[in-house]
Amino acid sequence: MEVWGLIISILALLASAFTYFKHDKKLKEQERKINEYQLKQIEKEDLESKKAAIRGNIVKGLKGKRTLKVYNSGRAIARNIRIEGLDVEGLFHRADEVFPYELMNPQDYTEVNIMLFNNCAPTIKLKYIWDDESGKNNEFEQVLTL
């Protein structure tokens, strides 16, 4: 009888050890996946902190007057901001006096006054080009309603 008790105890001990190591392996795998995810999130946030995001918006005024507001909605400083696409028939502006814009901090903006004439298209496609910590000649295209 003592032998059977010893065998049952050993089997119970082996079963417990097997369960422990199996559970430990699952926990370590989950921990590895969580660590990988956290590292990816940190890298993504680090990259986002180095990016500027130049966008525009048209504000309507009276009798064909418009204001193009160009702003930085990113987290980094934008430098050497250029705009392409303002050379449209029926559109008068003085953007060449403002652009290239030397430096725009996050959440800052600048404005360009625009005057529309009768033969102007209802929309305009603009391309913003800028440099920031993530690289040079970043681009964003946008269609705005005049």
Rank of each mutant, 00 (worst) to 15 (best):
W4S: 10
R32F: 07
I8G: 10
Y128T: 06
K65F: 06
G135A: 05
V59G: 07
K65Q: 10
K51S: 07
T67M: 13
P100M: 07
S49G: 13
W4V: 13
K69W: 00
G135Q: 02
K26P: 02
R94Q: 11
Q107F: 09
K63I: 13
S73Q: 07
G135L: 04
R32K: 15
Q30L: 12
E89Q: 12
K63N: 14
A78I: 12
S16E: 04
Y37N: 11
K125I: 13
A95W: 00
E133G: 04
H93L: 12
V143S: 06
K127R: 15
K136L: 09
D46F: 06
R79S: 05
Q38D: 10
N137D: 10
N113C: 04
T110R: 04
Q30S: 14
K26N: 12
V59N: 04
E29R: 12
Q107T: 15
W130H: 04
G64Q: 09
A76L: 05
G85S: 08
W4H: 11
L6A: 14
E48L: 15
G61H: 05
N80R: 13
K127A: 05
N113R: 08
R75G: 08
K65A: 12
L62M: 09
E141G: 06
Y37R: 14
V59D: 02
M104K: 08
E141K: 14
R82Q: 14
Q38C: 10
L27N: 13
I81K: 02
P122V: 14
L146A: 08
R82P: 05
I34M: 09
K28M: 13
Y20P: 00
I81W: 01
L27C: 12
D131G: 06
E29G: 11
E84I: 03
D108F: 04
R66T: 05
I81S: 01
R55V: 12
L39H: 09
Q30P: 02
L14V: 13
G85R: 11
E36Y: 08
K33S: 14
R94M: 09
V70P: 00
P106T: 08
L62Y: 03
A15I: 12
G90I: 02
L91K: 01
N35I: 15
K125T: 13
T110N: 03
N113H: 08
V98N: 00
E2L: 07
V88D: 01
S9F: 06
A52L: 06
D87W: 02
P122G: 13
G90M: 01
Q142S: 04
R75L: 12
I8C: 12
H23M: 09
G56Y: 00
W130E: 03
T145K: 11
E36F: 10
A95D: 00
S16I: 11
F21P: 01
Y128K: 05
N118K: 14
L68Y: 00
K69C: 09
L126N: 03
F117T: 15
Y101F: 03
L68M: 02
K125D: 10
L47I: 06
L103F: 07
L116M: 11
L62A: 13
R66F: 08
I81H: 00
F92K: 15
A15V: 08
A95R: 01
I77L: 10
D46Y: 08
A17F: 06
V98K: 04
E133P: 00
